[in-house]
Amino acid sequence: MTTTALTARNDAARPVGSDTVLDVDGLCVEYAGAGEPVRACTDVTFALRRGEILGIVGESGSGKSTLITALTRLQRPPAVTTAGRVLFHPQDGEEPVDLVRLTPRKLRALRWTSLSIVLQSAMDALNPVMRLGAQFVDALREHDRSMSHTAAWEEARRLLGLVGISADRARSYPHELSGGMRQRATIALALACRPELVVMDEPTTAVDVVMQRQILAQVLRLRREFGFAVVFVTHDLSLLLELADRIAVMYAGRIVELASATDVYRTPMHPYTRGLRDSFPPLHAPVTRLEGIPGSPPDLRALPSGCPFADRCPAVMERCRTELPLLEPHGGRSVACHLHDEGIRP
């Protein structure tokens, strides 16, 4: 079991294949503020395989939330997607669609059935004045009009059961549930129409560690059952190391490293990834003095011409100040750092 899991992880690091469900290419998002537009996401490129869990990790201002709202088209002014595409490949072999250019009508048809979203606050996703089950029934029947009312209620109870919420809770209102239960209900609701892709934006930040463990165990089990892919956004790298297949590390609006969880943990290539990894004190291993990453992230309105991490980087070189490193493939993984240039350009 251990060996198969390991191979699966190494496979996960390989580039775009035929079983890709989401193909993000050169995505740029800007905020049209009062002055010069501020670029919050720059040239984001990655591919997500079917059934894969891709973790996106970053600190405040890294652009991870901007990326998620752009991917799911939940963005509001003044955010604008200025370049790039987000190709969604439906399972049944239909033509891929570009989520960036999709009409609102077609987008609506795609939501829930192909692509669903779980947000940090369950209260945002649940209607406070509707019984829990009724919200499932609405979602189910919206997308499958042939489904009878009773069948939908039956399905709602089954879905709630999948996340460990007893069937009699279906008649409760959201405020009658605990925070953890609400978040689990939101996940069940997101899965109601069997989407191929679920985007989760900090889904466990508002719950306690024990509940977090329980929710993630259920997500993993549901994925085994339904086979959906997950984009999991969080600031907690320690969680992703345990949960994700691959991890994309974001800094100042760019992906600076994209590798399998094992590689990110064992051999981080970007100094920022390494610093972030070492920012989590161990739970069992011997405690040594850790330093975190000195300094603070750069102002997106005034990015340096070179590498945005240069000011905080322990391995900074001359060229880092002048030349921006781009995300380059590097043996099944990618990194944007001049330290690894020699290997690529002979």
Partner: peptide, 21 residues
Amino acid sequence: SVSRRVVKRTAAHRIAVASEG
């Protein structure tokens, strides 16, 4: 919230970028 001006500016920015592309 989001004033009409911001929405307008956003739209203008989108068009500007599109025509550049």
